[in-house]
């Protein structure tokens, strides 16, 4: 144990840089995935049948295939199209495509739980389609989807550990490098796990706060 603690202190800058990279990636893709999810969700409500089926095909494919495939496609695939990108960029694009699909599905589920009459009323009141979406559909769907969306954020944080497989220098990979110098693998992975648990606990607490703050009387998920 002492060896590991000693090494953790000795390699602290490297490990902290890894942690920073993990948080950076998680923050970026949670944000882009959130926005992407809203865009994709809005496309599923499009008037055009072609647009709807393409969108649904996209969602289905990205939910039906492993995250690792999306990351490898970006990391090994894009350079062949002449796009040379960094591991961070590859990870960001792969994750965004993946998370947007999941978030869009969360919003679709919430949308199905909405009161149809209210939407009819909005249209009858003379709101245009985009206005109805922006003022009525989206706020309510988002509110209903809060638990699913915050779960997704936790999932995103945990999933960033996969990015080390495409050479992104995130937290997990940095702890492993330290472990490779002293062969304390078990303790290193245990340490990694504990750090993730602490981060997840933080997100869960924040999510509870958010849920309480935006709760409306008589309106719950």
């Amino acid at each position: 144990m002492n060896v590991l603690i000693h090494d953790l202190i000795a390699y602290a800058p490297q490990i902290l840089a890894g942690l920073e990279n993990t948080l950076l990636l998680a923050a970026i893709v949670s944000l882009t995935g959130f926005c992407g999810g809203i865009v994709v969700f809005s496309l599923t409500l499009s008037r055009s049948r072609l647009c709807r089926s393409i969108t649904e095909g996209y969602i289905s494919f990205f939910i039906g295939t492993p995250l690792l495939v999306h990351l490898f496609l970006m990391y090994y695939g894009l350079p062949e199209l002449g796009l040379r990108i960094s591991p961070l960029a590859a990870a960001a694009v792969g994750f965004t495509l993946n998370i947007s699909a999941y978030n869009a599905r969360h919003l679709m589920t919430a949308y199905r739980g909405l009161d149809r009459m209210e939407l009819e009323a909005a249209r009858a009141a003379g709101f245009t389609e985009p206005e109805t979406f922006r003022l009525i559909v989206l706020p309510q769907a988002l509110r209903l989807a809060v638990p699913a969306l915050t779960n997704q954020a936790t999932q995103n944080l945990k999933d960033t550990s996969v990015a080390f497989l495409i050479q992104y220098k995130e937290f997990f990979s940095q702890v492993q490098e330290v472990a490779a110098t002293n062969f304390e693998f078990f303790r290193a992975y245990l340490f990694t796990g504990l750090v993730y648990l602490a981060l997840v606990a933080l997100i869960v607490v924040a999510a509870r706060r958010l849920e309480r703050r935006i709760a409306l009387p008589g309106f719950s998920a």
Binding site: T154, K158, D159, S161, V162, L165, F172, Q176, F183, E184, F185, F186, R187, A188, Y189, L190, T192, G193, Y196, L197, V200, A201
Partner: peptide, 23 residues
């Protein structure tokens, strides 16, 4: 429930496969 829903799958897999032999 908290531990196994909170730990990344890849980290747990490495803990089991590469970590446990150390014990």
């Amino acid at each position: 429930t908290f531990v196994f829903r909170g730990i990344p799958v890849l980290v747990l897999l490495f803990l089991v496969f590469f970590g446990l032999p150390g014990l």
